[in-house]
Amino acid sequence: MHIVVCIKQVPDSAQIRVHPVHNTIMRQGVPTIINPYDLFALEEALRLRDRLGGEVTVLTMGPPTASESLRKALTFGADRAVLLTDRYFAGSDTLATSYALATALEKIAAEFGAPDIVFTGKQTIDGDTAQVGPGIAKRLNYNQLTYVARIAETDLAAGTITVERRAEGGTQVLLSRLPALITMLEATNEMRRGSIENALAAASAKVITWNATDIGVTDLTKCGLRGSPTIVKKVFAPGARSEKASFIEAEGGSDLLADAVISAIFARAPAVEADLLEFAATQY
């Protein structure tokens, strides 16, 4: 079977600050990692391949340096890596991202065989929208299975897949058909350690690099900022509350301090005191 995993390279830390004078984002020097949620998707893909045979292709869209994340995925045992990079893709929102990735997936299908499953992570830690997966599914007309906690059964001959999906208030067991797009839930598996052989192979492996023309984009207005219906007008750091915290102090040890704290809470929120007394009445 052919499985494609979409991974994104993201900044390792949230310590990105706004420049105090220029009000621009200071992104320099922040180390990058594979979006942690995507590792659950990658591991699940590798397990399926190990069990059922076939190949795992990893796909990312990003700057040329995103090839580092692809190489990392190769060390875990992915068979092929595709980097989609083009300045025309810069500034893509979820709609433009899903357009670019879906178009690349069509090219992957044509070159290396149609995917049976496309995986994405549940969400990214920088974009954090959980919308790119559903966007790809819709564009490719794949059956969409989000928040998958477990793949119960994959029947390649019948072209069916059974998954357990995290729904509101419970778990749905869904029977669907391949090809499917799965967004994998976190903490559903544990990423393997890459083998030495994989690491060696990855070091010399070729990352397939495509730009917009390579994947057959003819309408550049669907890409990047121009293809993004959402417009970011303002980026800002959250301010302090207008009123600063009132500090509570007490001389003479933590018992007195505790009492002062409780008095301050009750003085500000008499309703909380009333509720607590009501609760206490049921307890003591």
């Binding site: 302090a240 509350r241 600063k244 915290a245 009132s246 500090f247 509570i248 102090e249 933590s254 018992d255 301090l257 505790a258 009492d259 704290v261 409780i262 301050a264 809470i265 500000r268 607590l276 007394l277 609760f279 206490a280 307890q283 003591y284």
Partner: peptide, 28 residues
């Protein structure tokens, strides 16, 4: 402390049990 309403500069490890004790005493 930039968004809290009440702030206490203290060691939580000693203040928490004191709060638990003081709350239960008051409520009782």
């Amino acid at each position: 402390f930039e968004f809290a309403h009440l702030g206490i500069v203290a060691d939580a490890i000693t203040l928490l049990p004191a709060l638990t004790e003081a709350f239960s005493k008051r409520l009782r």
